[in-house]
Nucleic acid binder design. Structure first.
Lengths: 147, 147
DNA sequence: ACGGTTAATGCTACAATGTTGCATTAACCG
DNA sequence: CGGTTAATGCAACATTGTAGCATTAACCGT
């Protein structure tokens, strides 16, 4: 049973020219393992669960660094807090889905807003951000459940 | 030269059943007069310019009240701060444009994201939020200007 | 027009999220 | 293994938004 994720995280970090630290590896793996985007607290909780207590500031800096290196991307949640997810978005602008029930954010890779719209004359868009709000597939099935 | 806006603001407020106060009138008029959405500080600055200094908390509450009554709507800016604009969005979900040059947010009434996309099975979207980032028409004309 | 009722205001203190500066630690390199 | 310096951890601060409560003033009835 190979564990390519683990080495992958370390390799990705090394490839960026940064130092390969416990924190960076752990944070990137956490993001990679999650199908949903995580906010700062989510990541902190998982670090703690792994027996890796961590400083708030270091976590902010680590997450920012991962985004800066293109190893993760960041969106602003409905609660005006940032949420992070592994994988950059080099040019592939995909949509997101905010579940109003469970509060999680999912990626809709198949939907590309930048290919669909024509803006009024004069506007020069560089990227588009499309966010749906509603009930996600998981919460839709177990309707009534209040996670 | 009639000034319908002024009475309009007061009438709209009265129609909601709330008390018609100086603050509410002034804030609503400021939002109505602006073609762009304003954040809390923008509104506070204009109140001050009108010789109406105001409490931060009152302004937050006034803005929230206007949104609650459907007299204004609110979006979250790229700096994770709220921005407000007159006019509710009863069901008409329009797109917004964040200008990276001047930082302002404009409404693109003609673009309706909720009519364009088909989501994967299971998702139950209730509303869609589409935000373009780039250079707005104003900044595009005077390229190089750094407001 | 006047006074009472109560919504709205303004103040202070607090909460959540994110940032800055700087001393200490530990990753990398020879 | 030891030196260099990026990364960390800590404390203090900044920004954005909230909560509680005493005071003011908008509305209503008379």
């Amino acid at each position: 049973m190979p564990a390519p994720d683990t080495s992958s995280a370390a390799h990705l970090i090394a490839a960026c020219g940064g130092r390969v630290t416990r924190t960076r590896i752990a944070v990137l793996e956490i993001l990679q393992d999650s199908p949903r985007s995580l906010n700062h607290d989510d990541v902190a909780a998982r670090l703690a669960a792994d027996g890796m207590p961590h400083d708030r500031v270091t976590l902010y800096r680590t997450l920012d660094w991962l985004v800066e290196q293109g190893l993760a991307h960041r969106i602003i949640g409905p609660d005006r807090a940032r949420r992070f997810k592994a994988g950059g978005e080099p040019r592939s602008q995909h949509a997101h889905f905010h579940c109003d029930r469970c509060g999680h954010v999912l990626c809709l890779e198949s939907i590309r807003p930048d290919e669909q719209f024509t803006l009024p004359a004069g506007y020069q868009p560089e990227r588009a951000e499309l966010v749906f709000h509603g009930t996600c597939a998981d919460c839709g099935r177990q309707r009534g459940a209040k996670v």
